[in-house]
Nucleic acid binder design. Structure first.
Lengths: 340, 340
DNA sequence: CTGAAAGCGCTAACAT
DNA sequence: ATGTTAGCGCTTTCAG
């Protein structure tokens, strides 16, 4: 692997000065037909590519945005990331990703260091979980920043999904169908306090005058849902279960089925997210849709606005909030309770 | 948003020269306790971060690797990406991603341009699909490159999963269970010619002296599997179906079930991948496991070796190939054929 | 141990 | 239209 050609090599090869090559490259100034041609030939013959590093250093503008996330493979994360990437690519930006595995200071620092060492135009943080929330405060304040989250944090531009309202609507629907109460299997919360999903569920029950049964915590692993489903199978008072996400709901349905409880005949089970496989499940899953792709695209759009402002040396724009609804999706996994 | 501090600001603030600050930063030379301390304080007070751009320009080495992929949200892609990221982060590299939506020259160029404008240490291409395969040849030859793929391309370092062998093993298993033949529902191939999965299936049939029935093509959308399942339900000669991936298999099972065909009692259905939800499906899916996370980690490891060699100005190492086995995972969705 | 000087590859100003 | 000059922020000689 020999030294890659630099602009000076091209200039020499074409018999012109370095700035002339640069002018051909950027198209920012007129160059005679003849020289332009020679330069282009030299570029092709040498296989020259301008150094992005030198360009970035000279121009002082970065065309890279970073995404910080607790993981990149679980459904919501992956699709949000894809939405951000789509918006960024359309705007000619590259996307840098870094996973923050836990909320330890050290982990966060290690994850951010290589990212911050790049020339960055801005950062999007997926604040879906404690690592993401913790990462939020480690972002240098001079960098445009947008958080994607289920809960509001003041002072930061954010795109949020109104989980609370979606969960409440689902809970009300279940109560209206005749269930005496709705049990809740929660996914790990993003912060110390309860998630929006859990809060919406609790609120709907309270407003209906129904005491909230204890929350059953699940992990992110669908297998934890299976174990919970098996436990719930013995409890004949449980007729409706709202799960923190679709994968857990799938696990719960499986656990119930293994113990002979049928869904929705014996127990109604609902999820959250509208996972691509939710409508293929048997029975098809009643759930609350989160449009992660749109979430991601809007996160980038919000960031782009800040980047534009920063570039004009304008003051950082007021922290904006974009809020999405999470609509109820009724399918076959829920229904009226058994008549006893 | 004011101009971020540069090294000269730190030097001035600490009352030392610029090189001294640099020495503190890199740790490449001794600095007196006193000055080191003052520099560190100045760095903290100013919130200074060294410019990765300038560093990269000066040192000529980049700590960013790019990943080119057809998408980032489907299971195999997302997990492979996560594996690459994990390896890269452990090695102090940042990961840049870009999606290549189709195999058009223009699309590829547009996707690569912002990426190549960055200082790159190397590129990993997910050559799972035609866009990925096409992107492969658009990568500048002086850049360390690793392809992750299901099929071998000579001359490029690669990490591949032996899909062919896995598919053949699965097919043989189905034949051994007593099925007269095995039908195949294919996912879109990565190249013009057939995928490894399809080839392995075909080979196993040929070796068993069984003529291969026509391949039924599916799209990446699980819903296409549902439609195919419905069609297959009428064909009583179809007793075993090998699907190109688990999501399609889930769709096929659902389509069959909607038409009253039970799995595995009436028809055996198998998938490929071992998707996280495969074992929660009813019935749990027989499949062939692809360890995407490992694939990703090894792709980075291979790339790191090339990067190291490039850094030592050594000749590019011989194109290495790492091949993984894809083991059969037997679950409940397959069994012996109905006795007629 | 420390500062002065040089230069990484490129582009923008400034002269022609 | 084109070449000359300067400089982006940093690290590494080179003197002292």
């Amino acid at each position: 692997m020999t030294r890659p050609p630099v602009i000076a090599d091209v200039a020499r090869h074409a018999g012109v000065s370095v700035p002339t090559v640069s002018r051909v490259l950027t198209g920012n100034a007129r160059v005679s037909e003849d020289k332009r041609h020679r330069v282009e030939r030299a570029i092709a013959e040498l296989g020259y590519r301008p150094s992005g590093t030198a360009r970035a250093l000279k121009l002082g503008l970065a065309r890279t945005v970073a995404v910080l996330a607790g993981n990149t493979s679980r459904h919501g994360y992956a699709v949000t990331l894809e939405g951000i990437e789509e918006g960024a690519r359309a705007a000619g930006h590259a996307v840098l990703i870094s996973v923050v595995e836990d909320a330890e200071q050290q982990t966060i620092a290690a994850a951010m260091e290589p990212v911050l060492a790049q020339p960055l135009a801005g950062i999007v943080v997926l604040a879906f979980d404690p690592p993401g929330v913790a990462a939020l405060s480690a972002v240098p304040r001079d960098l445009p920043l947008v958080a994607v989250a289920g809960a509001r944090t003041t002072g930061i531009a954010q795109v949020v999904i109104d989980e609370d309202a979606g969960a409440a609507e689902l809970t009300r629907h279940l109560l209206a169908a005749g269930h005496a109460t709705v049990h809740h299997v929660s996914v790990p919360p993003s912060r110390r306090r309860e998630d929006g999903r859990t809060r919406g569920w609790r609120r709907a029950l309270r407003e209906a005058g129904v005491p909230a049964p204890p929350v059953v915590p699940a992990t992110w692993d669908p297998a934890s849902g299976v174990a919970i489903g098996r436990e719930l199978a013995d409890r004949l008072d449980v007729t409706a279960v709202f799960c923190g996400n679709d994968e857990i709901a799938m696990g719960v349905i499986r656990g119930l089925a293994e113990c002979g409880r049928r869904v929705p005949d014996d127990v109604s089970v609902a999820g959250f997210d509208d996972h691509p496989l939710a409508r293929l499940w048997s029975p098809p899953l009643t759930t609350v849709r989160q449009d992660f792709a749109r979430l991601g695209r809007e996160a980038f759009a919000l960031l782009a606005r800040q980047i534009g402002a920063a570039h004009n040396h304008a003051p950082r724009p007021a922290a904006r909030l974009v809020r999405h609804a999470a609509p109820l999706v009724l399918r076959g996994s829920t229904g009226p309770p058994v008549r006893s």
